[in-house]
Amino acid sequence: MKILLALDPSTRTMDEAIKFAAEKQASLTALFVLDTTWNDYTGHDWLSGSGSRADFLEYARDDELASEVDVLATFRGRCPPDCEIRSATGRVTDEILNELARGDYDLLVMSQPFRRGLEIVRDTAGMILKGATCSVYLVREDEVRCSSRSGIESSLGVPAS
């Protein structure tokens, strides 16, 4: 069995994926996607001049890189040594779906809501469920204010397909 963990800052999701992989003796791959869609998100803004947007996009990218370092360090501190860690850049949902298609996974584990880059303003789980080729295990993130935003309120421990 092959499990893909889509990484975000949630330690609860990391622990669930690690526990589940251990129980099923499955191989676990963790994927961190560095969000590069800030450009599109601010695409409607035409008033910015000179270096404003370039400065901001660099600032957002630095924030993304710092987040990558943080999340990966947290995950490395918890996962067994045989876990594989991958990184990708692009639109988060696209990259997760690409990895699913490439890796022939049996299960995707991710947080709901998913807090990675601009996914905080998007329905990540909804998009993933539309395109996923395997079962999806959504781990509820309780502390986040936007949990009611998504139509998918999967309960903990029940894989949705």
């Binding site: 601010t42 803004d45 008033l47 404003s52 947007r53």
Partner: peptide, 8 residues
């Protein structure tokens, strides 16, 4: 200016 000022 909204978005422009926010990102500046």
């Amino acid at each position: 200016c909204g978005v422009s000022a926010a990102i500046a």
